[in-house]
Design a protein around this nucleic acid. Structure first.
Length: 331
DNA sequence: AATTTAAGCAACCGCGGCTCA
DNA sequence: TTGAGCCGCGGTTGCTTAAAT
């Protein structure tokens, strides 16, 4: 037996809200509050709407102090930082952006920000490509400077697509990142991908933040089959260095002692907040959600002038099992 | 000017988790 | 302990508008 419907589907209105409905809902909630019961609210308010629909309308549009319009560079930065760490936990991300709703942020990410990052990350012609300066100039302050030269998504010639910016939190916990032992460095090493593009790698120290990006098989697609997100597909690592990342076991770069393990998402329970991506050697830390930690993540991703610097990515993939990892480090 | 395609965004849906009887 | 009821989240859909052809 299936779950009982939350409302009488036949007798509720669906689709866009009219101004009259908006004002009814707004007036009611301002007068009486939600009463902690959204299901009963529409009837009391004289609305032929599902309670869930009322809740959504209120939270995303009608409640006070909702901010619409352009996102600022600072908001972009916060979204990127948190997405890199906790993935698509839009409500948590929204909690750090006053006036923004999770739905807003989700839409913004899927339609604009993600593409923006990809465009910025799209490499110039190989002949003009050179390793980024390190550390980056502190005079860089616009968002476009955040990722320019520092994000190098892997581009597959076979699929003609870039890898996506996907969170490691989508990687199955049992196979999650373990650690690094580390040779911290401020001078990057450079790896080459099959396109012979240079990817700078800064081996971090233990105290640094580690963020990993993985991917689930699916991405958000629209009904007509177009994909509003950039699909992450199979990538075949050609170089020795990249091939080293293509199995479900810890990888140890013999030169640099960088260890990363990852695995299949298995299609279940793969996006838990308590998956902490920066564990120590040989362990996967499990932590409870702590708002203070979220704030720390944001602040730690900022330099004094408020920009992320030294952002590096490594990408890998297991072609059949959708094991994908992008190793990301920033501080 | 008409048609097609893409982008943006509001809203819907289903599920997991929480609470409480 | 269990199950019903509800909330809230994240993924998805579909409508509207803008841009391209």
């Amino acid at each position: 037996m299936g779950r009982a419907p939350c409302c009488d589907k036949a007798n509720v209105k669906k689709g866009p809200w009219s101004p009259e409905e908006d004002s009814k809902l707004k007036e009611y909630i301002e007068k009486y509050g939600t009463g902690g019961n959204w299901i009963a609210l529409p009837q009391k308010a004289g609305l032929k709407r599902c309670g869930k629909s009322c809740r959504l309308r209120w939270l995303n549009y009608l409640r006070p102090n909702i901010k619409h319009g352009e996102f600022t560079d600072e908001e972009d930065r916060i979204i990127c930082s948190l997405f890199a760490t906790i993935g698509s936990r839009w409500s948590i991300i929204a909690a750090q952006l006053p006036g923004r709703t999770d739905n807003d942020i989700k839409n913004y990410w899927n339609t604009k920000l993600k593409k923006k990052l990809m465009v910025m990350a799209a490499a110039p012609p190989q002949s003009q490509r050179k390793p980024p300066p390190y550390p980056p100039s502190s005079s860089e302050s616009s968002f476009s400077s955040l990722y320019k030269d520092y994000t190098i998504p892997y581009y597959s010639t076979s699929t003609k697509s870039f890898t996506g910016f996907e969170p490691i939190s989508s990687v199955h916990q049992s196979n999650l990142l373990h650690s690094t032992s580390g040779l911290a460095s401020t001078n990057p090493s450079f790896l080459r991908n099959p396109e012979n593009l240079v990817c700078p790698v800064y081996y971090p120290s233990m105290k640094d933040n580690f963020l990993m990006f993985g991917s689930e098989t699916s991405c958000s697609t629209s009904s007509d089959g177009s994909c509003s997100q950039i699909k992450q597909e199979d990538h075949h690592m050609g170089s020795t260095n990249f091939q080293s990342f293509t199995s479900s076991r810890a990888y140890e770069d013999q030169t640099h002692k960088l260890m990363v393990s990852y695995g299949s998402n298995g299609g279940e329970n793969v996006n838990q907040w308590n998956e902490k991506a920066h564990g120590y050697c040989g362990e996967t830390q499990t932590v409870d959600y702590d708002p203070e930690e979220v704030k720390q993540l944001i602040s730690s991703s900022s330099t004094s002038n408020g920009i992320i610097n030294n952002t590096n990515f490594l990408f890998s993939d297991e072609n059949k099992t959708q094991e994908k990892v992008m190793y990301y480090y920033y501080h």
